[in-house]
């Protein structure tokens, strides 16, 4: 038989639970209409990421345009110039990698792609707006056999390094948890 103390405690628990449910349900209901600081850090972060992706795609668009026109030297010089304003930005490495591969500087291009993916996995993520998955998959599939056979013919540290980098990209493309 519970005494008065227990009964008061039980009553307090019930009241607190009702209050929690009431506040929590109110929180859930009004979720869509909330504005300002109450929108929560997750939403804030999602907005920031969208803004960042838009900014990158817009800022580096001139490089993409030059690359499309196959004006690779001009595109690379533009990359160099943008790097002064955005040092360390992995998007520059992706652009640099894609231009170098187009020009035939394969090992250097592979290294640039990998440098970008190491910093930002979005480039191999199908869900990301920065996604370059198809391009990187093609690079890996096209260059792996050639680098392997070059290495077999000539155990050259430059090829060895390129092969290791290609395996890294292959592993990132394969997915997994990391």
């Amino acid at each position: 038989m519970r005494d008065r103390f227990d009964k008061i405690c039980l009553l307090a628990i019930v009241v607190t639970l009702i209050a929690i449910v009431a506040f929590a349900s109110g929180f859930v209901r009004s979720d869509k209409n909330r504005v300002g600081d109450e929108r929560g850090p997750a939403v804030e972060r999602a907005i920031q990421e969208q803004v960042r992706a838009n900014f990158l795609l817009e800022t580096f668009e001139p490089v993409e345009q030059l690359k499309e026109k196959r004006e690779y030297a001009a595109a690379l010089l533009k990359v160099q110039e943008l790097e002064k304003s955005y040092p360390g930005e992995p998007h520059l490495q992706i652009l640099r990698g894609s231009i170098l591969v187009e020009q035939g500087a394969l090992t250097e291009g592979i290294a640039r792609y990998a440098a970008a993916v190491r910093v930002n996995g979005d480039y191999v993520d199908a869900n990301s707006r920065l996604n370059r998955r198809t391009e990187i998959t093609r690079l890996v599939e096209d260059s792996l056999p050639g680098i392997k056979s070059s290495l077999e013919a000539d155990p050259n540290p430059t090829y060895k390094k390129a092969l290791k980098t290609l395996y890294y990209l292959q592993s990132r493309l394969a997915g997994g948890c990391e």
């Binding site: 004006e71 690779y72 030297a73 001009a74 690379l76 010089l77 533009k78 160099q80 110039e81 790097e83 002064k84 020009q103 035939g104």
Partner: peptide, 25 residues
């Protein structure tokens, strides 16, 4: 290409100052 790149990196010229008429392999 390298000298252009270095001059751009050092801010002596910009990429937009020039037309690249042709580039070698």
């Amino acid at each position: 290409a390298l000298d252009l790149e270095l001059m751009i990196a050092e801010g002596r010229v910009t990429a937009d100052d020039f037309n690249i008429i042709a580039q070698s392999e």
